[in-house]
Simulated assay, not measured.
Amino acid sequence: MLGIEKIHHIAIICSDYERSKRFYTEILGFEIVAETYRQERQSYKLDLSLAGQYVIELFSFPAPPPRVSRPEAAGLRHLAFQVADIEAATAFLQEKNVITEAIRTDEFTRKRFTFFSDPDGLPLELYEK
């Protein structure tokens, strides 16, 4: 048996490091664990945590190629974040000029959710617990 215990982290490559750093820290509320500039790769690596748990590695590289993310392209579909109050979370994002879709209800779980995008168009979801 492989023995996977949990997801360790999610790696995201951004096109504008400072813009994405502000988005993930100032808007989404992730905390910086470490920030490293790798001169040989001309790349930043930003380690981010949520509630003390290491979650995201944010990378920058010179001129990364665009990745198709919508509609329904093969590969990672979206990254979902659980929230207690989806209306309050959506209102907060909209106050920060982040466009969100209308809140919908999952037909199977009956839970409410909505989608928005990071600065590079990566689909992100808020899912109400």
Rank of each mutant, 00 (worst) to 15 (best):
M1P: 04
M1H: 14
L2G: 11
G3H: 11
I4K: 01
E5H: 08
K6A: 15
H8K: 10
H8E: 14
H8S: 11
H9E: 10
I10M: 08
A11D: 11
I13D: 09
S15R: 13
D16M: 09
Y17H: 08
E18I: 09
S20W: 00
K21D: 10
K21C: 13
K21G: 07
R22Q: 13
F23N: 03
F23L: 07
Y24C: 05
Y24L: 06
Y24D: 03
T25M: 01
T25N: 04
T25V: 13
E26V: 06
I27E: 02
L28N: 04
E31N: 12
E31T: 13
I32Y: 02
I32S: 01
A34P: 01
A34D: 14
T36D: 13
T36Y: 14
Y37A: 02
Q39H: 15
Q39M: 12
E40P: 03
E40W: 11
R41W: 11
S43P: 01
S43E: 07
S43A: 12
S43N: 09
K45T: 11
K45Y: 09
L46Y: 05
D47W: 13
L48S: 00
A51W: 09
G52L: 04
V55C: 15
I56D: 07
L58R: 02
S60D: 10
S60V: 01
A63P: 05
P65G: 05
P65Y: 06
P65E: 11
R67G: 10
R67M: 09
S69M: 11
A74P: 08
G75D: 14
L76V: 14
H78P: 02
A80N: 03
V83G: 09
A84T: 10
E87P: 04
E87H: 12
A89R: 07
A91W: 05
L93Y: 13
L93E: 02
Q94T: 15
E95Y: 00
E95N: 12
I99F: 03
T100N: 07
T100E: 05
E101T: 08
I103V: 15
D106Y: 10
R110H: 11
K111T: 09
R112K: 12
R112M: 06
R112P: 03
T114S: 14
T114I: 10
T114M: 12
F115V: 03
F116L: 06
S117V: 09
D118I: 01
P119C: 10
D120P: 02
D120F: 01
G121S: 06
G121T: 12
L122H: 08
P123G: 07
P123C: 00
E125K: 07
L126F: 15
L126W: 05
L126Y: 04
Y127G: 02
E128M: 02
K129V: 12
